[in-house]
Simulated scan of single mutants.
Amino acid sequence: MALLGSVVSRLPDSVIKDIGFVLLPGFALMSFAAASEPFRAANVIAGQPLYRLRCFGESARTVAASQGASIAVEPLSATLEGPLDAVLVCAGGYPATWHRPAIHAMLRRLARKGVRLGGISGGAYLLAAAGLLQNRAFTVHWEHASALSEAFPELRPRQARFVIDRDRITCGGGIAPLDMAHALIRERMGATFARQVSDWLLHTEIGTPAAAQRGCLAERYQVHHPILLSVLETMEATVEAPLSRQAMARDVGLSMRQLDRLFAAHRHTTFAKDYLRIRLERAHLFLRQSALPIAEIAFATGFANQAHFARRFRAHFGMPPSQVRRVDLSLGEFS
Rank of each mutant, 00 (worst) to 15 (best):
269 T>H: 07
225 H>M: 03
273 K>S: 06
266 H>S: 00
250 R>D: 08
238 T>G: 08
287 L>N: 06
295 A>T: 14
234 T>F: 12
227 I>M: 10
288 R>N: 13
284 H>C: 09
258 Q>D: 10
289 Q>R: 15
285 L>K: 10
275 Y>A: 03
229 L>F: 13
253 G>S: 09
246 Q>A: 12
282 R>M: 10
284 H>Y: 09
259 L>F: 02
244 S>M: 10
250 R>I: 04
278 I>G: 03
263 F>A: 00
280 L>D: 03
279 R>L: 05
291 A>L: 06
269 T>F: 02
274 D>V: 08
232 L>K: 06
276 L>S: 04
275 Y>H: 09
231 V>N: 04
236 E>G: 05
252 V>K: 06
276 L>V: 04
284 H>N: 11
269 T>I: 00
280 L>M: 06
258 Q>S: 14
294 I>M: 14
252 V>A: 01
277 R>K: 14
239 V>N: 04
285 L>R: 13
247 A>I: 07
273 K>T: 01
259 L>G: 02
277 R>T: 07
262 L>D: 01
241 A>Q: 15
249 A>L: 05
278 I>Y: 04
249 A>E: 03
236 E>A: 12
228 L>N: 01
285 L>M: 11
291 A>N: 12
227 I>C: 07
226 P>C: 06
226 P>R: 09
284 H>T: 01
276 L>N: 03
244 S>Q: 14
261 R>G: 00
263 F>N: 00
231 V>W: 12
224 H>N: 10
252 V>M: 07
227 I>G: 01
235 M>N: 03
272 A>E: 15
236 E>P: 08
279 R>M: 06
277 R>H: 07
268 H>P: 00
292 L>S: 14
278 I>N: 09
276 L>A: 05
261 R>V: 04
244 S>R: 13
264 A>N: 07
282 R>H: 13
271 F>K: 09
264 A>T: 05
232 L>I: 13
279 R>D: 05
228 L>Y: 05
290 S>M: 07
225 H>K: 03
289 Q>M: 11
228 L>M: 04
260 D>G: 05
263 F>Q: 00
226 P>A: 10
252 V>W: 11
254 L>T: 03
260 D>P: 02
255 S>C: 03
258 Q>A: 12
282 R>L: 06
248 M>Y: 12
275 Y>K: 08
262 L>V: 01
284 H>G: 09
242 P>L: 07
273 K>Y: 00
244 S>K: 11
237 A>Q: 14
288 R>I: 15
274 D>K: 09
243 L>P: 07
289 Q>T: 15
239 V>F: 06
291 A>R: 11
296 E>D: 15
251 D>A: 15
258 Q>F: 06
228 L>Q: 03
247 A>G: 12
252 V>Y: 08
228 L>E: 00
229 L>E: 07
288 R>W: 11
261 R>I: 02
251 D>T: 13
234 T>H: 14
250 R>A: 14
293 P>W: 10
276 L>W: 01
292 L>M: 15
234 T>E: 14
256 M>N: 04
283 A>N: 02
254 L>S: 02
231 V>I: 15
226 P>Y: 12
254 L>P: 05
261 R>D: 04
243 L>H: 09
226 P>I: 05
261 R>Q: 07
267 R>N: 00
289 Q>W: 02
291 A>Y: 01
246 Q>G: 06
280 L>F: 02
223 V>G: 05
281 E>P: 11
250 R>E: 11
263 F>L: 00
